[in-house]
Design a binder for these strands. Structure first.
Length: 259
DNA sequence: ATGGTGGGGAACCCA
């Protein structure tokens, strides 16, 4: 099966671009971030007509995550555990019932800028909660993955100009250390496991012609549990659609699993 | 050093 992650930066503005990409890539599962829509306003029927089950966890104006799936979904769970006062819609889980069942987590990790400040504190606290949830899921037998916009540049090679990001929440030592703590639980960064192409990015700013200069960063990731990594056949980034009409500032990343 | 571009939604907030 093909599972993709795609920060669409607003479902209303991206309906055509998303639809065209779904018809091109034909993913079994599309994990979406920044739908920027409440559940009632998400164009559910449009995607159901394309054969997808639609599960959203939305919010007015900001954030919001969703899962579109051609395979049955079970045990859907909305929200990251660990803080009942957190009202930001950034986490959704489901089990995809393919040949093998795979637990998937869709996430929109906080940006965290400016540093220092309350937004950065929220980012780091959110990553601690995410690590706690990952530890819980690792206790189950079934393979699982966490995919989405991590807002983390893991290493220097994940940016065209890492020197421009040294004070940014996406590249600060604390953010990258939290990412490494996740990896050290036994997760595989799918892109690095299956794709050695240099200058491989998933986000290009709308400003200053970043796309035309390939001035990008890699911040959209798949982390696979060891059981899930055993199923990994491919991982690619559909970067070309960044140059299409009315694009998001992110592009889709996808994995092919033997599941 | 600044401002440059988008989306949401109706004045700014967020990225």
């Amino acid at each position: 099966m093909i599972i993709a992650t795609y920060n669409i930066n607003g479902i209303k503005a991206r309906l055509n671009a998303l639809t065209n990409w779904l018809e091109m890539r034909k993913p079994d599962v599309a994990i979406l971030q920044e739908i920027k829509s409440v559940d009632e306003n998400f164009p559910r029927e449009h995607f159901e007509d394309m054969g997808y089950q639609v599960e959203t966890h939305g919010q007015k104006s900001f954030n919001g995550v969703a899962i579109l799936s051609k395979l049955p979904l079970e045990d859907i769970r909305r929200g990251l555990p660990g803080d009942d006062s957190d009202e930001q819609a950034r986490w959704i889980e489901a089990t995809v019932m393919g040949e093998k069942a795979v637990r998937i987590c869709g996430l929109y990790l906080p940006n965290g800028n400016p540093v220092p400040g309350p937004k950065y504190d929220y980012k780091l606290a959110w990553m601690e909660r995410m690590e706690a949830r990952a530890r819980q899921l690792l206790e189950f037998e079934e393979p699982f993955l966490m995919a989405g916009d991590y807002n983390i540049i893991p290493q220097a090679e994940d940016a065209k100009h890492p020197e421009n990001w040294t004070e940014d929440a996406l590249y600060r030592p604390e953010s990258r250390a939290a990412w490494r703590r996740l990896l050290n639980l036994g997760f595989t960064d799918a892109l690095r496991a299956r794709n050695a192409a240099p200058e491989t990015y998933s986000f290009w700013d709308f400003q200053r012609g970043a796309w035309n200069r390939n001035d990008g960063i890699r911040i959209d990731h798949f982390l696979l549990s060891s059981d899930c990594a055993d199923l990994l056949e491919d991982c690619q980034i559909d970067s070309e659609i960044r140059g299409y009409e009315k694009p998001s500032d992110h592009v889709p990343v996808w994995v092919k699993l033997a599941a």
